[in-house]
């Protein structure tokens, strides 16, 4: 089956109600654009051939060359970009919502409220449902983008598609790189772990492996494409603890990231200056929009209990010590000695 059909099926399938609220890739329309471009190109080729034959109307071919492709380029890419941005935004808000609904992650009053709510209606079912839909949603769109760009490159025999992909990555709207997807994956895995077999179909796409050498979370995409997420902090070289994802998508332990940005652990990453850079990609200003990966944290906690506890103690001591030192220094400077 062609992907276009699959996509259409997905769009008009059982989750239509859900998709109405979200934007998605206009696969068909984009494809049409490409088609027109292709015909234009054929036309252009024809004119080129005729040109060679009898040297007639060179102006026509000129026009065709100038107008068609740049025009469709502009339309094509701008539309795609917009859609991708929308999808990511939608996805983010959804997952955040989901995250807040998770009773294990929520704190304090929120948890009480949630607990109360659960008495009246079984939230869990709907949450799982939503989680599954979100995964479906993001993967379908990601594939759509991938396919359409591939098609574009094929039609134009260019590398613009690839370039666009890297551009998406640079702007952190590549769907499959979103930290929220990892969060969603952790969410699913958490449910899987906590509720046994019941939701196994939900986490089917996700799996994680915390072994000594390397800890990865794997996402299986429909076409047996595997997407792996490294859960190792590049700074301490261990499994991320209390992980934060910078807006460039890189994961770090909170304490490591704080040290790298030279802020107090208690102040948190948001306190980092705008010019502090990601320790991996050196992009500046990625700390302000960092994402606290609560679900992932919980996942680590459930999967590697021992490590988590050890680390928890160490981190507490570290934060405390750092804070103490800081305030000591403050008082010293205040007193002036």
């Amino acid at each position: 089956m062609k992907f276009g059909d699959t996509f259409m099926e997905y769009l008009h399938g059982e989750q239509e109600w859900f998709l109405h609220k979200c934007s998605h890739i206009e696969y068909k329309r984009l494809k049409k654009v490409l088609k027109s471009c292709r015909t234009c190109k054929v036309l252009h080729d024809d004119s080129y051939r005729t040109n060679q034959g009898d040297e007639e109307n060179p102006a026509f071919s000129q026009i065709c060359q100038c107008q068609s492709c740049p025009l469709c380029d502009q339309m094509f890419f701008s539309e795609l970009l917009k859609e991708a941005t929308d999808i990511v935004g939608c996805f983010r808000s959804r997952v955040r919502h989901l995250q807040h609904l998770d009773p294990y992650v929520a704190s304090g009053i929120q948890r009480c409220v949630l607990g109360l709510r659960q008495c009246f209606k079984n939230d869990q079912q709907s949450m799982v449902q939503e989680g599954r839909m979100l995964i479906e949603y993001i993967t379908m769109n990601a594939i759509a983008i991938h396919k359409i760009l591939k098609k574009y490159d094929k039609v134009h025999s260019s590398v613009n598609g690839k370039n666009f992909k890297s551009k998406l990555r640079a702007e952190h709207i590549e769907l499959l790189q979103s930290p929220w997807l990892m969060e969603l994956g952790a969410f699913c895995l958490n449910f899987n772990g906590s509720d046994g077999e019941e939701f196994s179909q939900l986490s089917g796409r996700f799996s994680c492996d915390f072994n000594v050498a390397q800890s990865v979370m794997t996402l299986m995409l429909p076409n047996s494409i595997k997407k792996e997420y490294d859960l190792t902090c590049a700074i301490c070289l261990e499994i991320v603890f209390n992980p934060y994802a910078l807006s460039c998508g890189h994961l770090f332990c909170k304490s490591c990231a704080c040290s790298a940005a030279s802020v107090l652990i208690l102040d948190g990453l948001k306190a980092a200056g705008p010019d502090s850079k990601c320790p991996i990609c050196r992009e500046a200003g990625v700390y302000a929009k960092s994402v606290h990966m609560v679900e992932l944290h919980r996942l680590v906690r459930t999967r590697c209990k021992k490590y988590w506890e050890e680390r928890q103690a160490v981190e507490r001591a570290k934060a405390l010590k750092q804070n103490k030192e800081f305030w000591d220094a403050q008082t010293k400077s205040m007193i002036g000695y």
Binding site: I235, C236, L237, E238, V314, E315, A317, K318, K321
Partner: peptide, 15 residues
């Protein structure tokens, strides 16, 4: 202390 311990851990991993 904690820092040193962590450093050690990292260094051991690196080694």
């Amino acid at each position: 202390m904690a820092q040193a311990a962590r450093l050690n851990l990292r260094m051991q991993k690196e080694l």
